[in-house]
């Protein structure tokens, strides 16, 4: 029932430790410390195929993350995927003819949008759309193309042999 001063000190230490652990989890383990997705300007890109891109996937230039994908929608008129991304306002000097492509980090890693800056004088503004985009590579399609081209090659060499 009675508590001593040392008990109070230990309780204070315990609460401090617990709250410190919560801060550690929030800052070191999760993404609170990295770029806040609340602000930033908006850019839109249209892709034929976005593969495994997700909301919150990173947007990078030369491998450095400058923003995140904020929304993904499907345009039923043009049959294209519409990807909306929020870019950190510090990086507001993307040329107007910048192209956007969907790449994969590593063989099995997550997919991200890589931006390739162009040479235009003007910069992309809030709400602008990318002119040039490159869709995600779908592994099955590549393998399929490879097999077909291989089969064609074999057929040609067979024909050449029989002649």
């Amino acid at each position: 029932m009675h508590y001593s001063k040392s008990h109070a000190t230990w309780v204070g230490f315990f609460v401090f430790l617990g709250i410190g652990a919560l801060f550690f989890l929030a800052l070191q383990v999760s993404n609170l410390s990295s770029f806040d997705h609340g602000d930033g300007y908006r850019l839109v890109a249209r892709f034929e195929n976005i593969g495994g891109l997700k909301v919150r996937s990173p947007v990078t230039v030369s491998g450095v993350r400058i923003g995140r994908v904020s929304a993904i929608d499907y345009d039923k008129k043009t049959y294209q995927a519409v990807v909306e991304m929020k870019i950190n306002p510090t990086y507001d000097t993307l040329p107007a003819d910048t192209s956007a492509g969907i790449y994969t980090s590593g063989l099995l890693g997550e997919q991200y949008i890589g931006l390739e800056p162009g040479g235009a004088e003007e910069y992309l503004q809030n709400g602008d759309q990318f002119e040039y985009t490159q869709s995600a590579l779908v592994l099955e399609e590549i393998i399929g193309q490879f097999l077909f081209s291989k089969a064609d090659e074999l057929k040609k060499t067979d024909e050449a042999d029989s002649q």
Partner: peptide, 19 residues
């Protein structure tokens, strides 16, 4: 180790739900 962890875990989705 740390960067992949930070990229995949979300404060609200993971940490807050755990709490």
């Amino acid at each position: 180790f740390w960067s992949q962890m930070q990229a995949s875990l979300d404060v609200r989705e993971d940490i807050l739900n755990g709490i």
